[in-house]
């Protein structure tokens, strides 16, 4: 396999990994970032391939011969023609795509768990974690929280459908299992309107429960949310 072929294989492999591989473990990457990775890979290939005269010939020789049509016949000739026609068309399409008004709304870079205010960091739950308190917390959760967060703590309550963003799914290990009890206390007490700008408070339907519920009830609800969802609060120990 020539160096040019190896470079081409590497480019395709990088594309497949960032386009289809990474989304298996993280959020899908935007095409702009994928293009950046492909560009950086191409730069790396060119730098590596031009370290010596021999490697330069190994890298660029097949490309120049392909572009020049030297020694090509049959399907290779047709392939060259196709590439020469496709490249300008792709450039034209890309230009058109960049200029045409977008049909997608602006990207929403909402931070799901923004930093809480200082006074809510590291607070300990003052309510003893007893079966009675958890039971009372479940009753409060059922009365005040389950219409949105669901009777099974999965964010699938009957009032959840019209809200964007949807209510949190506490069973998901990416939500309350990643947070301390004091964080939940802040979120429940101050509600969606208590979020900072990164949390897009103008969209949140989470009520500001401090105007309706005493702190003790909120702490009990927090215990119920962990118990009912099978999660444990995050600790630093």
């Amino acid at each position: 396999m020539t160096l040019a072929m190896k470079g081409a294989v590497l480019l395709v492999a990088v594309f497949l990994i960032v386009k289809f591989g990474l989304p298996l473990i993280t959020a899908p990457l935007p095409m702009s970032l994928i293009w950046l990775y492909l560009f950086l890979t191409t730069v790396g290939i060119v730098v590596y391939g031009t370290l010596s005269a021999e490697s330069t010939e190994a890298l660029l020789g097949p490309i120049f011969r392909f572009l020049g049509g030297e020694g090509l016949n049959g399907s290779a000739k047709l392939a060259r023609l196709a590439v020469l026609v496709l490249v300008p068309l792709l450039v034209g399409w890309q230009t058109y795509s960049e200029l045409v008004p977008s049909s997608q709304p602006p990207a929403e870079n909402r931070t799901i768990h923004p930093a809480p205010p200082g006074e809510f960091v590291g607070l300990a739950n003052p309510v003893p974690n007893t079966p009675e308190n958890v039971m009372m917390g479940k009753g409060l959760f059922s009365a005040f929280c389950s219409p949105c967060h669901g009777a099974k703590f999965n964010g699938n309550g009957p009032a959840s459908d019209g809200f964007n963003p949807p209510p949190a799914n506490f069973v998901d290990p990416g939500t309350i299992a990643q947070l301390q009890e004091s964080y939940l206390f802040w979120r429940i007490k101050k509600g969606g309107v208590g979020l900072n700008v990164e949390g897009h408070p103008w969209k949140s339907a989470m009520p500001r429960w401090e105007v309706e519920l005493p702190d003790e009830w909120i702490w009990k609800i927090i215990m119920a949310e962990y118990a009912g969802s099978g999660q444990k609060p995050r600790t630093w120990e």
Binding site: T2, A4, M5, A8, V9, L11, V12, G61, P62, I63, R65, F66, E70, G71, L72, N73, S75, A76, A79, R80, A82, V83, L86
Partner: peptide, 13 residues
């Protein structure tokens, strides 16, 4: 150059 040219074209395509 013909075989590598075909393969290169296929990869590009």
């Amino acid at each position: 150059g013909a075989p590598s040219g075909r393969a290169l074209a296929a990869l590009l395509a």
